[in-house]
Design a protein around this nucleic acid. Sequence first.
RNA 1: GCCCCCGUAGCCAAGUUGGUUACGGCAGCGGACUUUUAAUCCGAAGAUCGUGGGUUCGAGUCCCACCGGGGGCACCA
Length: 484
Amino acid sequence: MTDFPYRYDVTHTTAEIVEAHSTLEAGAETEVVVTIAGRLMLRRDQGKLAFGSLQDSTGRIQLFAMAKSTPAFEDFTGLSIGDWIAVTGVVMMTRRGELSVRVDSWDVLASAQRPFPDKWHGISDPDTRYRQRYVDMWVTEEARDAFAKRSQIVASMRSILGGQRFIEVETPMLHPIPGGALARPFITHHNALGEDLYLRIAPELYLKRLVVGGMEKVFEIGRVFRNEGMSTRHNPEFTMLELYWAYADHADMMELTENLVAGVAKQVLGTTTVEYDGRNVDLSSPWRRATMEELIAEHAGVEISLATPMDELRVLCERFDVEVKDHYGPGKLILEIYEKTCEAELWDPVFVTDYPVEVSPLSREHRERPGYTERFEAIVAGRELCNGFSELTDPVIQRERFEAQEAEGAAGDDEAMVVDEDYLRALDYGLPGTAGLGIGVDRLIMLLTGTTTIRDVVLFPTLKPEPVRGGSDTVDGEPSEDDE
RNA sequence: GCCCCCGUAGCCAAGUUGGUUACGGCAGCGGACUUUUAAUCCGAAGAUCGUGGGUUCGAGUCCCACCGGGGGCACCA
């Protein structure tokens, strides 16, 4: 069972054949000879005839085999569901009008030694679907569609940004200091350096170093890692788009954001209206802008600001069932009240603006409202989609913010930032007014594909390792290829 | 980390207030069939009921612990 071909000359995909011949008359036979390859997903044997369904990455087509003309007919009817085969033959239409490829010759490319799931019901157990995605992708059409869309969405983002002359870069994933976000990092160790390193929680500080270095429009699409709980919208590793734009501010960035999201929707879906969780979402620009405090007034019915006495804010926190820690200042309390009372209520896209300085250590202070920043988040369908701001460019103020963060860390906040001296040195060389943006790519894909769990848009979501069983599945030490 | 729910053959799936030998289907195996569409028909087979304890004359079913998963909370810019 080992002598399978190393390569095979495939001439057509199933989709190409369907496209070219779908109008054939029932019973008609062409003279077009094709070679197709894929997995045998169904078989209907009928004595001296056999029908099968061959699936490739583009779709399915029926195979038509006859005892008198198909070589090794007995073996053909003995194929297992899931076997990879290649078939060569003429394109024809059966009497019942099913477009088919007649099996004039065929080869096995790989045999499926484990049985495939039920041909009709597929896999219902989510655990099996996520662990054995290689099977799920064959039997679950929605899974195939979601990952095809994912690819198109990311390609569309790249093309739109490229069209605006943004340059794509790759910055380190191994960070000596975790920075650019408030999150607990994964820690790893480099043996030769004898140093602990952190898997990045955000590329932010490196990308801004690149603006200092002269890249005026720069972005990165890549994985970030956060050592936090998992849920339907959180995977420990996820994909982030971060983008920096010199000489621009938060207002420019909001425009770019709404146009980017609406543009991707238009390109990939052909519409800016998507259905999510049973409701329509209108992504067309412009999106509403509202300050955090306006939204709190709307949804919680209370007028508050940084000028509101701490006592009053604490009372409100109690009323809205917000957990308060000792080191929380007024800005943090307002943010907590907003998240508790507003976020889940916001459906059509809203840019929430004017975040307090206290909770925005990398954002530049608002030019008209001291104590607030020029920061925004877009909330869509009750979830945070992105975060952006006019970047803090002043090294002295940035140092103060870092130090305030370190104080919070000392007070018990294990997600607080630490001082990044090299980043401050970069700022010393001068960062012009710059706007920054971060979009959770997985969440954008969920939104555009109507998916309510992130595990359905991540190919291999993080799961607990399977318990090791009795050693029968252990892989023998395969010699590793030499690194060149 | 907390709360609720789920785990029956490779896959889907029934199993009553605890009561002989755990209902079926798909796939697989044997047989019939020259235009099927989840093909159909006939036959035989396949299950330490997630794991380990406990209660009981008797446990898939009740209790406890553990393992894995789902949902929610917490966490999460």
